[in-house]
């Protein structure tokens, strides 16, 4: 490589130029003005962004050549400490995986539950709930930070649930998914998507029983709902079902 090339190389086509640039960006080879230009292009040019992503996918298997190296145990301790994860002793009977999820959900409830007990009003006073609907259990979910208020009620006789978007709106391109959280150890059950306006009523899914106590939660999901069948986005709000007096 000490000799200069004998003849000037054939220039790259514009397509090759883009691909080469995407590769260099993905590999971290660009600096200064070229790096800034590529960064800007990723944000505005979806084709270029896809090229960069494909380069990451293409080259990632190179990492499989590496011999695995266990990290010392203190590394995980430091991570948990940095994230404020205090060690919570696991109950013997509690399955490990839903436990953590539910602890988190139940943590979110604590704040909302107080509000729910104050503002639940007899649903019969609401003019947008279907005629003949006689709820035994209901709750109100209030998410002040996004200006959202949602009412949910259950008619135990025919296992019908009604969810009303009372205030607020759902951002374009997103959906709010409704979840049933029966207990701290149960898997969340999807009840469907919050309507973009007005009221939705549906039969309660198998595995859910009308009762006071379960929590109704809303999460922010991609359009069409969670791609995994489990909540993937942040919780917008949640509240426990209470008896309707």
């Amino acid at each position: 490589m000490t000799d200069a090339p004998a003849s000037p190389p054939i220039p790259l086509t514009p397509e090759e130029e883009s691909q080469a640039l995407a590769a260099e960006y993905a590999l971290g080879l660009l600096e200064d003005a070229e790096l800034e230009a590529a960064q800007a292009r990723v944000a505005t040019d979806p084709d270029f962004a896809a090229m960069v992503r494909e380069w990451h996918e293409r080259l990632a298997s190179l990492a499989d050549e590496l011999t695995l190296v266990m990290a010392p145990a203190r590394a995980k301790v430091m991570i948990d400490r940095a994230l404020g994860h205090t060690q919570i002793p696991e109950l013997q009977s509690e399955p490990r995986s839903p436990g953590g999820l539910m602890r988190w959900f139940w943590g979110a409830i604590a704040a909302a539950a107080v509000v729910a007990t104050i503002i639940v009003v007899p649903p019969m006073l609401r003019d947008d709930i279907p005629a003949g609907f006689q709820p035994e259990f209901a709750t109100d979910i209030v998410a002040g930070d996004v200006g959202l208020q949602v009412h949910a009620g259950i008619d135990a006789d025919d296992r019908t649930m009604v969810v009303v978007l009372e205030e607020g709106s759902i951002p374009e391109g997103r959906d709010y998914e409704i979840w049933w959280l029966e207990s701290e150890t149960a898997e969340p059950v999807s009840l469907g998507l919050l309507p973009r306006s007005g009221t939705i009523s549906f039969p309660m899914p198998t595995g859910t029983e009308p009762q006071a106590g379960p929590v109704i939660a809303l999460t922010d999901e991609p359009e069409g709902g969670s791609p995994t069948g489990l909540p993937t986005g942040p919780v917008i709000g949640s509240a426990a079902l209470v008896p309707v007096s």
Binding site: L66, M70, R96, S97, W104, T228
Partner: peptide, 24 residues
């Protein structure tokens, strides 16, 4: 997906499954 929901147990499992590779 569960880590997105602040599930620490899932985070622990992901760490166990992937930390030796990422450390490498």
């Amino acid at each position: 997906g569960r880590i997105a929901l602040r599930d620490r147990a899932a985070f622990d499992r992901l760490y166990d499954a992937t930390s030796a590779k990422l450390h490498a």
